[in-house]
């Protein structure tokens, strides 16, 4: 079975439970971004490249972790992508100016992550989670910074290159992997959530 076939199946089996899980985690991610968005995009980015490294430990792993968790719960990369879109669009419509950047970044990076998740779908070990998380974090960061994202708009492509050199995506991926693996195991043990975890 090819990767594209897996992605096609993800789309076909994307049902009401996937929508509900994506929405719930997307809204919780948006609520988290009420604090994290100003912290990450204004206060820490205002500090320049040094602030971006702190960003990699504080704001992004939790956000990416929540979004990736949606995919992990349903074993469907599309659920994670829709979760990210819900988070970004609700942010845009509720007055967060960085919501549209997030939408653009998650559209590109999220599809990369979906692709990566499809490739690793049948072997979800911690190492594979780490690889997938790295792909997710790096994909979004590259889309966010270089395509038409934050740094060209802020005015300095050099800031983007400086950020890439801090290797903060690796830090983000490691922290995010720990969050997803830890929370996924904890949540799957909750009796009341069995119906969400069981793929129909």
């Amino acid at each position: 079975m090819g990767i594209l076939q897996v992605m096609k199946d993800d789309f076909k089996t994307f049902g009401a439970t996937d929508v509900a899980v994506a929405v719930v985690l997307g809204i919780i991610a948006r609520a988290f971004m009420l604090i994290a968005s100003p912290l990450a995009n204004v206060y820490l980015r205002g500090l320049g490249p040094a602030g971006d490294t702190i960003n990699a430990l504080l704001a992004y792993p939790i956000l990416f972790g929540l979004v990736a968790l949606a995919g992990a719960i349903r074993s469907n990369g599309l659920t994670a992508l829709v979760c990210a879109w819900v988070m970004a669009i609700v942010r845009s419509f509720t007055g967060d100016p960085f919501g549209i950047f997030a939408l653009e970044a998650f559209t590109v990076g999220g599809i990369m992550a979906w692709f990566g998740m499809a490739a690793l779908r049948y072997k979800q070990t911690t190492v594979n989670w780490l690889l997938w998380s790295f792909l997710w974090a790096t994909g979004i960061q590259i889309a966010f910074i270089f395509i038409w994202g934050v740094y060209p708009i802020y005015g300095s492509m050099q800031l983007g290159w400086a950020k890439l050199l801090t290797l903060d995506d690796i830090i983000t991926a490691v922290v995010m992997c720990a969050i997803v693996v830890g929370l996924s195991r904890k949540l799957s043990a909750v009796q009341g959530l069995k119906s969400v975890y069981k793929k129909v």
Partner: peptide, 8 residues
């Protein structure tokens, strides 16, 4: 998270 997922 748990309460939200149960509602979901």
């Amino acid at each position: 998270l748990v309460r939200g997922l149960r509602r979901g």
